[in-house]
């Protein structure tokens, strides 16, 4: 598992990203300082802090009112949880050089191209097809009448108790490299890693077998 360094570079290609660095500190999902219902024992530290670490046990357990705002976008790109996401940016049929942008995380003036967790697989478009082909957009042919309901994304990994590290709610197969998705610069708090200095993820974060185990009779 490779901890990835954050790479900032000037734009040299017309590559595309659809993630933005998230909102300013005031626009957190539920700002503790905005909530007047929240009862705090030791008020000062909680109010000033804007990261998860400063929150007490009750806050981290209470997910009511949390809107997992990365999930709609994630789900719009996947037929079901753990399906290969469709390519959310324009890509021509002649474009094959995905790894130019997706081998290592790349930031372009605030935009982020995520690194792939499986760069050893080179036939990207075997699994990742383009989402909504640009040149055919706007045509009636795009609508698909289907009743398919796919497996939902888990909102987070289960925690045994308030301070426990969340369990990993997905298989590691094809996702062996944690930091590619849980990058310290991921735009959404819920995916973003707030302790990138700790590199041995599996020491604390174990598989949640209830969600991940595939046992075939």
């Amino acid at each position: 598992m490779n901890p990835l360094r954050l790479v900032t570079a000037a734009i040299t290609t017309a590559a595309l990203s659809v993630w933005f660095i998230g909102c300013g500190s005031e626009a957190a999902l539920v700002t503790v300082s905005d909530s007047t219902d929240y009862i705090v024992e030791e008020s000062s530290t909680i109010k000033e802090s804007s990261t998860a670490e400063g929150l007490s046990a009750e806050t981290s357990l209470s997910r009511d009112g949390f809107v997992f705002d990365h999930l709609p976008t994630r789900e719009s790109r996947r037929a079901f949880y753990t399906a290969p996401p469709v390519i959310p940016h324009e890509v021509g049929d002649g474009d094959r050089e995905c790894l130019t942008c997706h081998l290592q995380e790349k930031k372009f003036a605030g935009r982020l191209a995520m690194a792939t967790p499986h760069p050893e697989l080179k036939n990207c478009q075997q699994c990742h097809v383009r989402g909504a082909s640009p040149e055919f957009m706007g045509s009636k042919q795009l609508s698909v009448e289907t009743d398919w309901i796919g497996l939902k994304e888990p909102t987070e990994g289960h925690r045994a108790h308030a301070f426990a590290p969340p369990m990993v709610p997905h298989r590691e197969f094809l996702r062996e490299s944690c930091l590619t998705c849980h990058s310290a610069s991921h735009p959404n708090e819920n995916m973003r890693l707030d302790h990138p200095e700790r590199v041995n993820c599996q020491q604390c974060h174990v598989q949640d077998k209830a969600k991940t185990e595939i046992i075939v009779p």
Partner: peptide
Amino acid sequence: EQITGVLTVDAIYHN
């Protein structure tokens, strides 16, 4: 992004 109250801005299609 900086407008008060904006949570996220996601680009979907870029030409």
